[in-house]
Amino acid sequence: MMSITTRSLARSRAFAVSGSAVILALALAACGSSDDPSMSGMHHGHKPSASASASQDSSTGDMPDMARAADGNGLADNKDGYRLASPDTTLKAGKPTPYRFVITDPDGTAVTDFALDQTKRMHFYAIRSDLTGFQHLHPAMASDGTWTAALASLAPGSWRMFASFSPDSGSGKGKDFVMSRTVTVPGAAARTPLPAVADSTQVDGYTLTVSGQPTAGTAQPLAVRITKDGKAVTDLQPYLDTYAHLTAFHEGDAAFAHLHPTTSSGKGSSTLSFHAELGTPGDWRLFLQFRTGGKLHTAALTLHAG
């Protein structure tokens, strides 16, 4: 096993604890991989994300600064004294690559005690600035609190890496946190336009139809009906302790929203119900993951929150 240790990460922000340091002992041999397949190359329209198109943007992307203060949308790398720290600011394009990070508490100590959320202690998401390339992983944690997310191939551009977790001790116990940092993947970054707003999409022969109208800043019910060959799908299998996992990202800043299922509906039912609360008006790209026949499917569509 080979480990890599970085020097103490300099704390340049006012929230940092004076004199504290973050030591990352990064055991690459413990590189974590999800026990569920990810749609790592998912572009708009469910096409692989390997090649560039004619429309170009800067490889640095257009995401807000990773330290931007934000309440509940995951666009900050710190909240309530907790911090997401990582030495990785640049990742290679076109090949699987690890992303290493640690969560520190208000004292600057690496957190190692996390509560289970939908059967996992850490949910990790990667999304490019144009909301393509979605990946949802469950990384592995080393004994010193270092997490390693085994990312699949990344297309050039600016990416935002989200960590969703709940400490199981300390001042943050019982609280849900979502934090993020940006990384650059060098190369000619082809920007893919966001698909038009629609209430249905298809993936792997399944048709998903969404009903309900999200309203920014308020909780609204949202239902997703799944059919195949015109018939209701009633053989959904559990995924992360429920029958579907729905994540949304806001166009322009990639603000995060996790839409929680309102019931454990799914077994014998083709309609899934969610509690939708999208914090910002505008278009959102939704990624819905569900399992049938032992295979994980990931569908995407664009919804508008008024």
Rank of each mutant, 00 (worst) to 15 (best):
S3E: 13
R7H: 05
R7N: 13
A16V: 07
G19E: 08
G19S: 14
S20M: 08
A21E: 13
L26Q: 13
A29P: 02
A30L: 10
A30K: 10
G32V: 10
D35M: 06
M39T: 10
G41D: 12
G41F: 08
P48N: 11
P48D: 11
A52S: 13
S53W: 08
G61A: 14
A67C: 01
D71I: 11
D71E: 13
Y82D: 01
R83Y: 05
P87R: 09
T90M: 15
K95T: 15
P96R: 06
Y99S: 01
Y99R: 04
R100G: 04
V102R: 14
A110D: 02
F114N: 08
A115N: 08
D117W: 06
D117G: 13
T119C: 03
K120H: 09
M122R: 05
Y125Q: 12
A126G: 12
D130A: 12
D130K: 08
G133P: 10
G133D: 10
F134I: 07
M141Q: 14
G145I: 14
T146F: 03
T148N: 15
L151R: 07
A152G: 15
P156C: 07
G157R: 07
W159A: 00
F162M: 06
A163Y: 05
A163S: 14
A163C: 10
G174L: 12
M179K: 02
T182Q: 11
T184V: 12
V185L: 08
G187T: 06
V210G: 04
G212K: 12
A216C: 08
P221M: 05
I226W: 04
G230P: 09
V233I: 05
V233W: 00
P238K: 00
P238S: 01
K267N: 12
G268H: 01
S269E: 12
L272D: 02
S273E: 14
S273M: 03
A276F: 03
P281W: 12
T298E: 01
T302K: 00
A305G: 06
